[in-house]
Amino acid sequence: MTSVYDSERLAASYAFDRPAVHRQILTSVRAKGPFRRALDIGCGAGVSTAALVPSAEQVIGLEPVQAMLAHRRSVAPSARFAVGTAEALPFATASFDLVAAAGSLNYADLPPALAEVARVLTPDGIFLLYDYAKGRHSLTGDALAAWFTSFEQRFPSPSGWWPLAVPELPLSGTGLRLLDCVDVEVAVPMTFDAYLRYVLGEVGVASAIARGEDSAEQAREWCRRTLAEVFLTEEMTVLFRGYLATLAPIGRAG
């Protein structure tokens, strides 16, 4: 069955229309580098891979859907990319001292995926597991949150994704242990046009268009018209809330 992510339109939106949240989340981690080799699991269009580039000498992004990599050379020109899944990483044992996964393990079979992360990590490597929620909150009241609720009702996300609770990760037998997990909040000033492009790139919109329930023009017009009632200033600070967990191979010091 064709994935909703097998879409040229969605690949372009993920590459060029999403705010730089990954880079801000990972800023606090970079002081612990530099790392020699880094792997980004489920890299999408490569934006999360690009965020790892300042932290490592060599960065590889892995994505299961080939179409999502269409703009990889523009997004992360110094990185390398491969097609593959988290449950069967196509890399040698102990070949990375940094592995990251940004919201991608929400689609994976966790026990084998986590075991594969442990396998490809060097004995002193670290695994950064992080994610952030959609930009539905702002610093200026609840109007954006109310709008986003109506947006999700109009454009519901397809099945296949499930929430991931870090304290409940099935780590037993995987070779990994949890070192730390912190909440993160990234504040991004966004213009009306930037926010409109961002939400039009959400997977629920792509799914509705793929099913023939809306055309791209109809989706854009609905979002533009209804957002105009909320976006009353030239710029709005949008909040992206999430978490950053640090895991390591069992036996790693520190």
Rank of each mutant, 00 (worst) to 15 (best):
71 H>Q: 12
73 R>S: 14
41 I>C: 09
6 D>F: 00
246 T>A: 07
76 A>T: 12
87 E>P: 03
158 P>A: 10
86 A>V: 14
132 Y>I: 00
192 F>M: 02
243 Y>K: 03
221 E>G: 00
24 Q>C: 05
86 A>G: 11
130 Y>R: 09
172 S>N: 11
97 D>A: 12
54 P>F: 07
85 T>Y: 06
226 T>L: 03
209 I>H: 07
5 Y>H: 11
76 A>S: 15
181 C>G: 01
93 T>F: 02
25 I>A: 12
221 E>V: 07
135 G>P: 04
181 C>S: 13
170 P>A: 03
154 R>Q: 15
106 N>F: 02
38 A>I: 12
181 C>P: 00
178 L>S: 03
169 L>H: 04
185 E>I: 00
11 A>V: 04
64 P>I: 03
181 C>Y: 00
80 R>E: 14
41 I>A: 05
144 L>D: 03
42 G>E: 09
144 L>G: 04
139 L>F: 05
196 L>F: 03
251 G>H: 08
116 E>S: 07
49 T>R: 07
195 Y>F: 14
73 R>Q: 14
15 A>T: 05
1 M>L: 09
168 E>S: 07
224 R>D: 04
125 G>S: 06
70 A>F: 01
107 Y>F: 15
153 Q>R: 15
66 Q>W: 00
21 V>M: 05
231 F>V: 10
23 R>L: 10
9 R>M: 04
195 Y>G: 12
235 E>P: 01
166 V>R: 01
165 A>H: 12
16 F>E: 04
161 W>Y: 15
219 A>Q: 06
14 Y>N: 06
2 T>Q: 13
162 W>C: 00
92 A>M: 07
191 T>M: 03
135 G>I: 02
137 H>I: 01
131 D>Q: 13
63 E>S: 09
203 V>F: 02
50 A>R: 15
56 A>E: 07
20 A>I: 00
